[in-house]
């Protein structure tokens, strides 16, 4: 026997704000993206927009490549750092983590502009080296740093590094010290403890770190725009151009189709990655797709 629940029950009322929020800012936008992706300018159904992927395959691939390199670099930098922080005395950990997060309190754009002034042909680094070169009377024409793929990767690593450090640090601090003592007790030296206990138990943090760096890196357009100087065109820039470019270039339908494909690609790759993390679900920390 079922009784009809009243519409204004306490449960419904408490859930309502989230339902409204999710509908307005997640479901409807995604619905719009899907709608535009499968329609033409007159509003009738078409699959033609999706064929633009062929045109931009190279750009897609470059975006994935740069995002992948940045993610790997972030991981290589962040893991040792997170490990060292997690081994510090408890009262110091807080302030070091604060330092890690401090740059995030500044506007993302301003930080990226700052890198421009550092890397420019007339920037701080080149001028400094030029001064040194003058002292020893060597000719120096400046390194070309800005407007290279290297500069874009640097910008990504710099901006997204905290997102790699924090989840790994959190997982590492959650590892029960008695597990490490138990491993030592059973004859493991420090290297074996790391390889057999600490690293396997920190994988959920690594996975969420990778997710949090790779996803924004693969879809960025600001970093490539500012540090790539328009020379390097990433998929994010392509999509941006379809929405905000010069009036002749604007085409919401193609832009939506490319966004949809990017989204699908990200969801699929995250799904594959979480698959590796299946065993350690219990320890938490991973992002579930």
């Amino acid at each position: 026997m079922k009784t009809k629940k009243p519409f204004f029950s306490a449960k419904n009322l408490t859930v309502a704000p989230y339902t409204v929020w999710m509908t307005l800012f997640v479901l409807i936008p995604i619905g719009l993206v899907v709608y535009f992706a499968f329609t033409d300018s007159t509003g009738s159904f078409t699959l033609e927009n999706l064929t633009y992927i062929k045109k931009y395959a190279g750009t897609f691939w470059l975006s994935v490549e740069l995002a992948f390199v940045s993610t790997v670099l972030c991981l290589l930098l962040a893991y040792p750092m997170a490990y060292i922080i997690s081994k510090m005395p408890a009262n110091k950990q807080g302030s070091v983590i604060l330092l890690v997060m401090l740059p995030m309190w500044m506007n993302f754009l301003i930080r990226t502009y700052a890198w421009m002034t550092i890397l420019e042909n007339n920037g701080i680094i080149n001028r400094f080296i030029g001064m040194l070169a003058d002292l020893i009377h060597v000719e120096f024409n400046g390194f070309e740093m800005i407007n290279t793929n290297g500069a874009i990767v640097l910008g990504m690593v710099y901006n997204y590094l905290p997102y790699m450090i924090l989840p790994i640090y959190t997982v590492l601090t959650k590892i029960d010290n008695s597990l490490i003592e138990a491993a030592r007790d059973l004859g493991s030296d420090s290297v074996q403890i790391f390889g057999r206990i600490v690293f396997p138990l920190s994988i959920p943090g690594v996975i969420s770190g990778i997710t949090m760096v790779f996803v924004p890196a693969v879809s960025t357009f600001i970093i490539s725009y500012l540090l790539g100087g328009g020379k390097t065109y990433l998929i994010g820039n392509v999509i941006e151009n379809y929405f905000l470019g010069s009036s002749g270039a604007i085409n919401y339908n193609v832009g939506a189709a490319l966004s949809l494909l990017l989204m699908v690609m990200i969801v699929v790759s995250m799904g594959i990655m979480n698959h590796f993390d299946k065993d350690s679900e219990a320890s938490g920390g991973g992002i579930i797709v």
């Binding site: 597990l179 206990i197 350690s280």
Partner: peptide
């Protein structure tokens, strides 16, 4: 500690959560 011929049973067992029973004992 890892070179001493003594072994410890910890208060809360400290079993390795990512290993099964066999691999824990074989550790």
């Amino acid at each position: 500690a890892h070179k001493r011929q003594v072994n410890t049973i910890f208060q809360r067992y400290a079993l390795f959560p990512h290993l099964n029973v066999y691999d824990n004992i074989a550790f």
